[in-house]
Design a protein around this nucleic acid. Structure first.
Lengths: 357, 357
DNA sequence: ATCCTGCATGTAATCGTTTACATCCACGGG
DNA sequence: CCCGTGGATGTAAACGATTACATGCAGGAT
């Protein structure tokens, strides 16, 4: 195949190619013929290699334009052994928290020309592993796991396959795994301190499910604040929530239906539960904050709509940081393996302090 | 390379391969050697071809197990000219509607062994096209577009590239493009009829942005119901919303701050706006439904939390149907190109009728 | 014994790029 | 006039699978 056969100016060639509406895919070979260079050079142009003379570069670019060439991802990935894609495992159930994180992940990924492949974890244990397995086999360059329930065993195993892994909202268990967390303790401490500062005497805690890091750390924050203020919890006022809206709704309904007296204030360890509590109270014609002050945690979108005082988790930033960590791990850039992001209290009307927005 | 050289039983071979912890990737060739067959046969086993004797099948499977082989996606995609992946373009801003649709898409896709690649459209026009361009070049087998603002031109263009496209919540403009819609008209009609049936005299409509299909169809539904009931709209009570929470919030605030009298009822053409209205009223110490009945549209998750009467859009099912259509288009299965899904009214307390949940 | 049939399997081309290495050429110094 | 140097470009071998086609073989019909 003598390339010189094609050594004619672009405008000379017969126009049978039309504007690329043909069925056959346009490849680098077509471009190389059209522009009279080798496929290697075409590839160099595509990949912005500096080792191409300006003249050939424009010739190739013209040919690309004319033929409507688009590079084939699979072939490229195969040759380069990278996919420019990061996989994200998304929890099946989501209260808006992870959706927001996902946006952050995406935003940064896009800025580095990476793409996102998402898989949903349906909740049950076996499913978790199966879902993440999808992402093996060279489909993605790195994995971001947003799922609290993912088994440690799996994480380690995956890490051994030389697949960089970033964990969100979950501690590291292994080297080779990066993690991005939020400062649950300080956040909970601040919220608790705020409630105590308002002079509330009987403060209830709507806790999270046992065994999850967030639930534990947030509770620790509460205890720490209480101790510092010399406040002692009433055991009866520590409710066993599970982080779902329903749990707040039902626990509060039971409490009220049983005719028990409301606490002065309640700190629900995440927003959905706080919203469940609000709803139950509303249905009993009780008012937040008049009958009970209420504080949540995370600042999901709906919290603002409901005027819920809460602790803001920097979801968007978590995503960005995780994305950055993942890509840096792939490209060999430096990365801090464990990052803890600050939280801050957002005061709205649900805690009884008047404030804008 | 004589395969007979490797014609020994698996258990005979030297165990220098360990359990696959080596750095080099395990390929079909490795498996073929290990099991004493050709790569073709290995491939046949992997792809569940029936043309393999049971004996060899187990031998190959053992080898795969032993070496920890995982097939390489890029190579497979390159050879088969399919990726088993469908791309989803997700709107940058989302009130929970599209997240839910996405879950539906995923659920069905998983059941057919397809994967999901997502891209976010950041809102501005140019971005839309750029984002969807990602998904070209053989990265995905089909595209599901959830974005209202995607330009028609782009859609047609993409359709010409033989890439099956499914539009969600947006009408077809071209053959070769499937679409999944909801029955906005009937839904709005039902909501309006409900409000009229409750005897409300002054009913406000919080409309959607001009030019979007949903907004138009929903409004038509209102008009239809009104005409049938012999009810005439007050022009002043048709508010120009834009489907965002802020729009409901601000319009209601302005109205109240101006000291104008509340309507008897309001139908916000989507939930976020209804929630904005609720919030504004709440901040003015007004009650829904006592001071004004309120109905929304879509039944996003938060609607339930707020006791908002609304029209349910079958988001999950839309996703499922879209996913099914996309995959069927790829695999050549039959597909109905335009599907309209039914909506139904969900009565909660915001319209003044008492009812459970 | 011969031939045909059909199943199980192997051979090798192919998918579209990338990239290490080889080549070619022009230019400047000696 | 020769040679070394370096920049621009070409050659061809990967990358890891799939698959059309060829082959070999066993068994039944004749």
């Amino acid at each position: 195949m003598d390339v010189n056969d094609y050594m004619q100016d672009v405008s000379d060639t017969i126009l049978r190619d039309g504007n690329g509406e043909q069925g056959r895919t346009v490849t680098v070979l077509d471009v190389s013929r059209q522009s009279g260079v080798s496929t290697a050079t075409v590839s160099r142009v595509i990949n912005q290699s500096p080792k191409v003379s300006p003249a050939t570069r424009v010739r190739v670019l013209k040919a690309i334009e004319k033929l409507g060439y688009m590079r084939n991802h699979s072939a490229r990935a195969l040759a380069r052994q990278r996919t420019d894609t990061i996989g994200v495992v998304f929890p099946g159930i989501d209260s808006g928290f992870f959706s927001e994180v996902l946006k952050g992940i995406n935003e940064y990924a896009v800025s580095r020309d990476y793409h996102l492949m998402v898989a949903f974890s349906q909740g049950d244990q076996g499913e978790h592993d199966r879902v993440a397995e999808y992402l093996q086999a060279g489909r993605v360059d790195a994995l971001i796991l947003m799922n609290l329930g993912m088994s440690d065993q799996f994480v380690r195993q995956a890490a051994q396959r030389e697949l960089p892994i970033v964990l969100i909202d979950r501690p590291v268990k292994d080297a080779r795994v990066a993690s991005v967390m939020i400062d649950n303790r300080s956040g909970a401490d601040a919220a608790m301190t705020h409630l105590l500062g308002l002079g509330h005497q009987r403060i209830a805690i709507l806790a999270g499910p046992d065994g999850t890091i967030d639930a534990e750390q947030r509770f620790e924050g509460c205890q720490h604040a209480a101790k510092r203020a010399g406040y002692a919890f009433d055991k009866d006022l520590i409710w066993p929530g599970n982080f779902f809206w329903e749990s707040g709704y039902e626990l509060m309904n039971h409490w009220l239906d049983a005719g028990k007296p409301l606490p002065d204030a309640m700190f629900a360890l995440n927003d959905p539960m706080a919203m469940g509590v609000m709803e139950a109270m509303h249905e009993h014609s009780l008012s937040v904050p008049d009958d009970m002050a209420l504080v949540g945690f995370d600042d999901v979108q709906a919290a603002r709509y409901l005027g819920l005082t809460t602790v803001r988790s920097p979801m968007h930033e978590m995503g960005r940081i995780a994305s950055e960590a993942a890509i840096n791990l792939v490209t060999g850039g430096r990365t801090q393996l464990e990052q803890v992001l600050a939280t801050d209290l957002v005061v709205r009307r649900s805690c009884g302090v008047e404030s804008k927005s």
